[in-house]
């Protein structure tokens, strides 16, 4: 298990106003984020046992210290064309304390952003279906897309 990277200091807001912290990760050109409370841990790519007959975006199951977790290729689930290998397993827990592993390309910084910058998603977001997006947050360089895990896991059960 890799330690969560320390928040990058330059992104730390100057004022101690109301903020939210997101774990960010990359899928191709897109930067996604999940509230830090929903992320259990980040692992380097783990050995995945494929599950034939499962939906194509389910890559298989992994052993997380004795617990068997389903592994979802997030890019495939979101319908993104990503060629790069998925190097990380992002272990996420849902509202019902279910754990699931998302395969992502690489892990970004942990970002603390002012709550006021976290906004409802616009009507159209490049490449991602709106239902999968809970919030967006405009960063100086790009848009951070905060995923709606519940929606991502819908229809997959």
């Amino acid at each position: 298990m890799a330690e969560l990277p320390l928040p990058a200091s330059e992104t730390r807001p100057v004022l101690s106003e109301d903020t939210q912290t997101f774990v960010t990760f990359w899928l191709g050109e897109h930067l996604f984020g999940l509230p830090i409370a929903e992320v259990v841990e980040i692992n380097r790519k783990m050995e995945i046992t494929p599950v034939p007959l499962a939906p194509p975006y389910i890559k298989g199951i992994i052993n997380l210290r004795g617990q068997v977790l389903t592994t979802v290729d997030l890019a495939e689930r979101l319908g993104l064309q990503v060629e790069a290998p998925r190097a990380y397993n992002l272990i996420v827990k849902t509202e019902d304390e279910e754990r699931i592993s998302f395969l992502v390309e690489k892990i970004g910084d942990i970002l603390e952003v002012p709550s006021k910058n976290v906004e409802e998603p616009p009507e159209r977001i490049e490449g991602v279906e709106r239902k999968f997006v809970r919030h967006v947050c405009q960063l100086p360089e790009r848009l951070l897309v905060i995923l709606n895990v519940r929606e991502v896991l819908q229809d997959s059960g």
Binding site: A54, G66, E98, I100, L153, G157
Partner: peptide, 13 residues
């Protein structure tokens, strides 16, 4: 170990 809800529907496991 039980399979979680994402895979439970597959009858051969």
């Amino acid at each position: 170990k039980p399979l979680d809800r994402f895979l439970k529907g597959i009858p051969i496991y």
